[in-house]
Structures are given as C-alpha cells and as structure tokens.
Design a protein around this nucleic acid. Sequence first.
DNA 1: TTTACGTATTGATAAATATCAACCCGATAA
DNA 2: TTATCGGGTTGATATTTATCAATACGTAAA
Lengths: 231, 231
Amino acid sequence: MVDNCSVPCCVECEHRWENFNNLQDEDLKKLCEHRHVAEFQPGEIIFKQGSPISSAVFLTKGMAKMYIEGFDNKRMMIGIAKQSRLIAGPGTFVDNRHHYTVSALTDVTACFIKMDILKEFVYTNGKFAEGWLKDISMKSLQTFYRFLSHTQKKMHGRLAETLLYLANEVHESDEFVMLLSRQEIGELSGMAKESVVRILKDFNDDGIIKDKCPHIKILNKEKLMMISNMG
Amino acid sequence: MVDNCSVPCCVECEHRWENFNNLQDEDLKKLCEHRHVAEFQPGEIIFKQGSPISSAVFLTKGMAKMYIEGFDNKRMMIGIAKQSRLIAGPGTFVDNRHHYTVSALTDVTACFIKMDILKEFVYTNGKFAEGWLKDISMKSLQTFYRFLSHTQKKMHGRLAETLLYLANEVHESDEFVMLLSRQEIGELSGMAKESVVRILKDFNDDGIIKDKCPHIKILNKEKLMMISNMG
DNA sequence: TTTACGTATTGATAAATATCAACCCGATAA
DNA sequence: TTATCGGGTTGATATTTATCAATACGTAAA
C-alpha cells in the first residue's frame, strides 16, 4: 500500500512525462494535488480495453504490457510501458474509451491524473499542446513501422526486431531477464509460441544470442540487426 | 493549369478540413492568401516519402493513394486520400519528414498550405490544437485496427475488409469503378496480386460481389461483413 | 492490321507458418 | 512426498500464402 506522499510530486519527479517540462511549477503542483497513486501486482489489470478514459496513467515503477484483445480472444501486444511515458491511448480525443488493455508485468506503481485537467492545458498552453501532438505522432509513427515489419518481414526478421526492441528500448541493455513468456513474445512479434521457441533456438545455435531460459544475452548484435533489417 | 482563383478560398470551401471550422474567417483568409494550388495527372507524385514537409496538403478534387515504400521496394498502401482530409502525416511534429508517398490515382487538384502557418494556430487557438489532436488520434486508431486485421485475419477476411473500405469510405456506394489494379489492391490488403484475383473470383462465384473488371458491385453486404469480421 | 506491352488470370509448386499432440520440467499445493 | 499444473520444447502434419511460369486479353503504337 502506498499513499500519495510516498511518490514525489510531479514538480520534482524524475520519471515524469517529457511534455510536463512545458508546464509551470504551479501547474504541476495542481496536478499532484489531483492525482491518485496505486500499486499493482504482476498480472493485474491497470486499465481495460473498452472502459472509459478518466485519467492519464504514468508508471513511476515497474513495467506493464499493452495489448489489444482482438478476434477469437487472440491478443496483439503493442509494446511495453515503462517510466516517463504517457499511457492513455489514442481514444482520449476520439471516443474517450481505452482501445487497449494495460496489465502489470512486474510490481508497478502508477500515477493517475485526471484527463480533464490535462486537456485543459491544451487550451491554455500552446507548447503543451504541441508536445502532446508530438507524443501522439511519435507513437503513431512507431505503430506504422511495426505494421510495416509485420507485413513485409518473415518470422526471423520480426523476432530479431522484437529482441532488439526489448534490449534497446525496454531494458537498455543487451543482457536482461525476459519478462515475457514465449506466448507473450509471440503476441508481440506476431507468431505462434512454438515458432518463437524454434527461432530462439536457431538464434542460440547460431551464436547470435545466449538463451538460458529467463536470461537472454545478445552476443552478436550486428547479425541480429542484419536479420531484423531484412530476415 | 489552374490558378489560385479557380479554387474557392478556404472560407467558403465545402471540402475543407473539418478542423478549419475552429478558425475565424480572417484566419482562413490568411490561409488562402498563402496557399498554392496544383494539378496532378494519374500516376504523378504529390509528395514523396523522405522529403521535408513544408506544407499541409488538401485535395479539392480527385483521389490519391498513400503508401509506404518498404523493404525490397515492396509497397504497403495505407489508404486512399480524398477531399476534406488533411494529408501531412505524422512526421509533422516529429522529424519534419514525410513518412509515406502520395501519388494521384485520378486527376487531382491539391491545395498546399504552409505548415508554419498551421502550426502557429496550435499556439494561439486551443480548439484548433484539440481538433488536430483528434485528427491524428483518429488516424492512429485506424492504423491500429488495420494492423490488428493484418495480424489476425486471413486473406479472405482482409480482402472483404478492403472492399468494404472502398465502398463505405472511399466511394460511398456499393457499386463503383475500381481505381486500383490487382497489384495495388494487394498492397492495400497485404497479399500477392494473384491471391487478390483468386479471392475476388471466389467472392464472385459465391454471389457476394459482381466483378466485371473495372466495375465492382457488392451484392451481399451482410455476408461480406461476416467474412470481414472473421474470415 | 499487326505488334508490343502491361495487366489479369490460371495452374502447379514451394515456402512460410500454424496447429496438434506428446512429453519434459520445475514450482506449488495437498 | 506425491500430485498437479502451467509453461517450455519437440516432431509431425495441415493450412495458408507466395512464387513461378504460362497464357489470355485489351489497348496503344507502328
């Protein structure tokens, strides 16, 4: 259990959203006063696809997976959420509904900030509005390029790309403990779990990675990038 | 050849971007004064992936295809641009580069409006900023759901979806002249042109569509929607 | 009219990928 | 300790989809 005091105010939070740099300290204080902090255990749902958006969410600790629940209960993982990132989704300005589910992968501490207050700043602070446009645009571009990968790359290329994403963007290290099950890696890279197993074995046998089950180490990043770029 | 006078000022343009409703008439007049109008023949490129974004583009006549040029020169078509839609792409607020190419499918008349002027309004007009956020968000959501389709649907489902998109969104009629070649339909629905041919034949044989080559008529929309929803 | 070219079509085949079933293995509950 | 359960792994097989090659067809140029 946490209370609001155990998490620093947005004014001095080192994990705050980059776009908060465009707000004044008094604005940020106002945000802290109206925020709520909650903790989640691994597997717990932070918010659910289809539910109304009342707050923006920011993680101050831990990681969560974001996924769309599609046809036939099949899941498509969008990516992994961590600190400094606005988690709200594109529904905010469209239908006020979440279009994907977010659930904790580790112990997570999350800040909930009322969306009304954030939207208010769009009217009164042009820099903040521009920053938000930039944020959405960047995520949109990332989606585009992942879409392109899925359409044009074969499985080895997609899985190589996923491993590079986990190393570069998520863990910021070429050696990490895999948070995701084979099933989940499949949901992230668009293939069956058995295919994940087989291709990881291929990479392992070729000396590109060392896969000692929860631990992953990238041994030959050059080659992995080559496979990703057009495997 | 057209000059600026042959296309109405944004103030009274019936095909203008919805978000322009948030601007005052004097703002719109300022836009007209700084715009440029150009005509394109089928096949001509309106702007090219990778080139810098100097202007937002709006079509006042005709249709154009938007596509990403991916690996191996393979193309992924994003969709078809027509009137009332901002064509600029998510690069505007990120790296100021176009991330896809737009080329005319028919005779096209296009308005170019300096992006600087539009961005200016983001600072001075909160409603306009919000409208733009909404615009980008909606496109982002559409991309998400197309991505989901590609990942989870099989070819029949994807092609059914594409036909419904062409009928509902592009031509706004269940009967239309197909603007796209089989190759291009394939780029839009993520499959080889031969597969497009075969599946169209299936749909034709099953009485779902009538496909007399450049003409397409949807005969059984219910069934087409069923196939799209999970074919 | 004939030729040439690009797209559409068709069939045969190969490649990519998913599915199914069985088994292994480590952790946890009884 | 034993039973159970949920991943992980593996091999066999079926399905989906692309590729290749040949042909047909319509239009524009010669």
